[in-house]
Design a binder for these strands. Sequence first.
DNA 1: CGTACAGTTCGAATTGCATCGAACTTCGAG
DNA 2: CTCGAAGTTCGATGCAATTCGAACTGTACG
Lengths: 109, 109
Amino acid sequence: MDDVIEPAAADFQLPRILAALADPHRLATVRYVAVHGESWCGLVMQEAGLAMSKSTFSHHLRILREAGVVTKRISGAKGYAQLRKEDLDSRFPGLMDAIIDAEVPARQA
Amino acid sequence: MDDVIEPAAADFQLPRILAALADPHRLATVRYVAVHGESWCGLVMQEAGLAMSKSTFSHHLRILREAGVVTKRISGAKGYAQLRKEDLDSRFPGLMDAIIDAEVPARQA
DNA sequence: CGTACAGTTCGAATTGCATCGAACTTCGAG
DNA sequence: CTCGAAGTTCGATGCAATTCGAACTGTACG
């Protein structure tokens, strides 16, 4: 069921993390949990402005988890996503801060 | 001939920059010019450990330029690539430092 | 128990990316 | 002018990513 491998911090691969963050949907997801802390996935989908099906969101979350960017915790029927800030900071100091604090350009057409 | 658009710093798009940096070959390229400063492309290809054809390298360099990560200067028949450190720092403070200074995991087979 | 909710997995379609060789342009050196 | 070196562009190809709906599993709650 849930065979997703969340790597240890020592196994983080920069290209993989950058690839995970390079998708606008996933970036929005990461930014949301960075600001709001551990969040229910359903809320993230709504609030982060992600117009996609459940299965697509599940896919994106998997990419983020397999890269080591987020963790998922299951409570009852719901899942909660959280940024792995400490682990990311330990391997790539300043990386996430730079990405999270980056100016979000005005939405362009 | 050279229609590659190198965007102004104000037009930098984070997802695009992250995507450009997410490829190991391009990451190696960026790290090389970050350390060595403006470099002849031929040398970069050799020294950065890039085993690829000229056309493929040209393609990767284009991606980096169009994202705003590097500039190219032509001198005679040769081209020289340079990291756009100031522009990148102005839009995304700390981003490039974090990426360049990241520990490169020991290459093991 | 049965219904609704939360989420994953699967298959399929579409799209995009990395890569190469070949052909071409341009520059520098003879 | 001619030759080789340096790069770019152009198809073509093969692989990976994104996306969806449908079917499935598991939890919560009347």
